[in-house]
Write a protein that binds this DNA or RNA. Structure first.
Length: 566
DNA sequence: GCCGTTTTCGGCCCGACTGTTTTCAGTCG
């Protein structure tokens, strides 16, 4: 059982305990422990063997026992019992908006409802209105919530949400009703998927801002409206929350509404120890406000270095000793993993190169598909040889830019690379990727990938888990072993910046960094505009605390070639 | 269930909004 699975069990226990009306602090303890494990960069099984579980903050005696049971037996009696006690369908009900564990428990205990379908039926038959705390409006709200739940997974990719948020910001700014306005919430932290869009504005007349906001293009429904908070649903189904505060309150509110929730809790604990109180309106000592004009001052007032939003996940960012020199959005000097019309890209090589050059990049590694990717018009040896000549011709064009000859080479089920060693040896780099036989058992898949990594012509492991966000699980793979192999053979692992991949994810990137495995932030561009995806990759790298030194393509060309040849 | 530079017991972050309520519980972030 790996760290992720153990964290999942503890999270699940926390959730189940809520249905039992358990002490909310006990519930939180389970979620905290899960969070602590999730961000761990070592294998919990090793920590357990060394009897060091108790050293992990958030893990005490009870957690230690449960984790040990999970690791040694693969099961946990306490968890099994809980699951038997609370029907799965009842747990599933909390994915209905504004329907939480307390309400779920009431309909289950009072009316014996254990599925969302039954819940809908009960609402339609007006059976809920008699229950304590339930009225006509609640019933209607639940029906609406179920409808929404069925239409949407309720999650959106970063690249779907970000442009919408930016256009709403522009709308509010254009109205001249706001002083300052910003994206907040998980979107500002660049979480890979988001549930909604959070916006924060400062203004002298909040009501005016709300008036403008509900008239924004795309608003289909006003879900709620108060003096300081308004929620709307867009025609796309996306929910947008807007909070309005006074301008002096803006920095505190921005910190607060950016979250994460766990980061905020940790911030307040830090504040409390210094006799300070933090809320969205200020930092106060007694009745005295500590003035901050922006977030930098906010953190300073608490004696902390400024924590960029991407890092605010309560995984150690409040410990100044651990603070990294984060990679910047302008740190990349070149990119790898780009496609052209030679395989399944939509743009000519030259257009891709010109776009990369216009973005201020100095080199672009071209890596069209190899022949096993027939669906993508993959190249055989002969076409690849021809493409190399074409690149030589194009490279005469620029003094300040170069296209590198590469290939996204299929890793065959055997673990061999798709094209002959002879032609691979002529390339400047080779990305190895899995595009077939996703269904292999974990052990075989791990061996397949590790064998490819050991191949002398292999340089970069492409989208290591193969997951597609919101649509496909990754293939089964022992990432720990894969990263070890990359380290041993001094190979590079990709952080694929394509917004529905972001693979490796931030947690595993951080693990790679801690192991000393070099990463490369790659756009996996199939069009010129896809090159801009590197922004999502850099954001993910920042979430993983990566520094420039951890990333291949922050380096100048000559150094990059040295690393690839070495 | 975790934690401790006043503590091994008694705390544990804080507030807005909604719908149901005459003072509050649940949900959300």
């Amino acid at each position: 059982m790996n760290n992720g699975q153990i964290a999942q069990v503890l999270d699940s226990i926390g959730e189940l305990l809520e249905f039992k009306d358990e002490n909310p602090f006990k519930v939180r303890a389970y979620h905290n422990a899960a969070r602590a494990i999730e961000s761990l960069t070592v294998d919990l099984a090793d920590v357990c063997r060394d009897k060091k579980l108790g050293d992990i903050p958030g893990i005490g005696k009870a957690m230690e026992e449960k984790i040990t049971e999970l690791i040694t037996t693969g099961k946990l009696g306490f968890y099994e019992e809980l699951r038997k006690e609370i029907p799965e369908g009842v747990v599933a009900m909390v994915s209905i908006p504004s329907f939480g564990p307390k309400k779920a428990r009431v309909v289950w205990k009072e009316l014996g409802i254990t599925t969302i379908a039954d819940l809908r039926k009960a609402c339609q038959e007006n059976k809920l209105s008699g229950l304590k705390g339930f009225g006509e409006k609640t019933q209607q709200k639940i029906l609406k919530g179920i409808e929404f739940h069925e239409q949407h997974v309720g999650q959106y990719l970063l690249n779907d949400a970000m442009p919408v948020a930016k256009s709403l910001i522009a709308w509010l700014e254009a109205s001249k009703t706001v002083h300052r306005v910003s994206i907040a919430g998980s979107l500002r932290r660049w979480k890979e998927t988001v549930r909604d869009i959070d916006l924060l504005a400062s203004a002298t007349d909040a009501a005016k801002v709300m008036d403008v906001f509900v008239k924004a293009p795309g608003v289909a429904e006003v879900i709620g409206r108060g003096d300081t908070k308004t929620s709307v649903r867009l025609a796309s189904g996306m929910q947008v929350d807007l909070r309005v505060v006074t301008d002096p309150q803006f920095p505190y509110a921005l910190a607060y509404f950016t979250g994460s929730k766990e980061h905020n809790v940790a911030i307040r604990q830090v504040a409390q120890k210094q006799g300070l109180k933090v809320n969205e309106y200020g930092i106060t000592r007694g009745s005295t406000l500590i003035e901050c004009k922006d977030e930098v001052e906010f953190y300073k007032a608490l004696g902390l270095p400024y924590v960029p939003p991407e890092m605010r996940e309560n995984t150690g960012e409040l410990d100044p000793k651990k603070f990294p020199q984060l990679i910047d959005y302008k740190s990349l000097k070149g990119v790898f993993h780009t496609h052209s019309t030679w395989s399944d890209g939509t743009a000519e090589i030259e257009a891709m190169a010109e776009k990369a050059r216009s973005m201020g990049l100095r080199y672009m590694g071209l890596s069209d598909h190899s022949k096993a990717a027939a669906y993508a018009n993959g190249m055989d040896e002969a076409r690849l040889a021809k493409q190399m000549k074409e690149i030589d011709r194009l490279n005469k064009k620029w003094k300040d830019f170069r296209i590198l000859k590469g290939l996204e080479c299929d890793i065959l089920p055997s673990g061999d690379l798709d094209l002959s060693p002879d032609i691979l040896g002529q390339l400047e780099f080779v990305i190895g990727s899995i595009h077939s036989r996703f269904d292999m058992p974990e052990k075989e898949m791990t061996e397949r990938v590790c064998k490819a990594i050991a191949n002398e012509h292999f340089d970069i492991l492409g989208h290591a888990t193969g997951r597609l966000l919101l649509s496909r699980e990754g293939y089964k793979l022992d990432l720990g072993r894969v990263l070890e192999a990359a380290k041993q053979h001094r190979k590079i692992v990709e952080l694929n910046a394509y917004p529905n991949r972001l693979d490796l994810d931030w947690i595993h990137c951080r693990r790679a960094k801690d192991l000393g495995v070099m990463m490369s932030i790659n756009p996996d561009a199939h069009s010129t505009s896809d090159l801009e995806n590197i922004e999502y990759g850099i954001a993910t790298a920042r979430r993983a605390w990566l520094e420039e030194k951890d990333v291949l393509n922050t380096r100048d060309l000559d150094e990059v070639l040295e690393i690839l040849n070495g």
